[in-house]
Design a protein around this nucleic acid. Sequence first.
DNA 1: TAAATTGGTTTGATGTTCAAACTAAATTAC
DNA 2: GTAATTTAGTTTGAACATCAAACCAATTTA
Lengths: 155, 155
Amino acid sequence: MAEEKNNISKADFRFMNDALVDVYDHIMRIEEETLRKSTFRDISVKEIHLIHAITLHDHKTSSEVANELRLTKGTLTTNVKTLERKGYVKRINDEQDHRVTRLTLTNKGKLLYRAHDAFHRQIVKSFIKGMDGNEVKVIKRALINLEDFLSDITQ
Amino acid sequence: MAEEKNNISKADFRFMNDALVDVYDHIMRIEEETLRKSTFRDISVKEIHLIHAITLHDHKTSSEVANELRLTKGTLTTNVKTLERKGYVKRINDEQDHRVTRLTLTNKGKLLYRAHDAFHRQIVKSFIKGMDGNEVKVIKRALINLEDFLSDITQ
DNA sequence: TAAATTGGTTTGATGTTCAAACTAAATTAC
DNA sequence: GTAATTTAGTTTGAACATCAAACCAATTTA
């Protein structure tokens, strides 16, 4: 066997590690800059992640969104408040249970959601650029490996 | 051709996008928790990234580190100050140019650096678990694709 | 119907960051 | 060779994100 399975050279480790680390920072940076130059220049990366978590259609409760983003309820309240003020998010009072507020995007919020989603689509597309079906499967397997590894650590 | 090149199904997009997004958050979370439970419980994820940027051997200047991490000089000064107080980092006065301070890790800092590096090694290893040389090449290509895409945007 | 629980908000504190003013050292321009 | 400019880093004051804890109102349970 020319290449041992599960054995990785120092150079490969360094390359992949740096790539994995840098890529995320780079994406955040680009998102920030892109937003700054767009019609949505009053929105930060953190805010767009909240908008993404609220999603297009499924009227989640505040607590659900807070859990997903691992923020306290208090933090979410304040963040939602500013996005509401800026006109991206609307609160809906739940008819069944008068304690809960559900979150939804305004038209402006939906527009931003779609723009952001399109950017992510580009990222994924670039990731698998020029690859055939089998190669895409290899990438998926790698991502599944990583997710499994990470969830094994957590519980 | 059963599978068109460069065409990705909605499901594949969603899977890869979510994986790419979630993986980073997950890693940060695990780093945070692991630190909390270790001997280094006085260190945050942001702080460990600073320690990583200072590196084991190459006595960078404050400005160099600030640029790498894209922080202002002022922010770096305060961050270094707390890491110095906690005993992970040392300032060295440059003999040539008395304006510059170079940054280096104490033994405690180096210990932490190595522990953190070992964790990253595990991550990369899990990423390519069970793959042969060709498959590893596919992964590398994907990461290069992504880096190219991102630098093209920034140029 | 009183007590406990739940969903969300408010409050006060902490940590991270920045921009701008500043200090000290080095470089350049005359 | 001194004055003016630039450079490296620090200090300061403000802004923002976050949290934990106290709180309020509605619902559930006992």
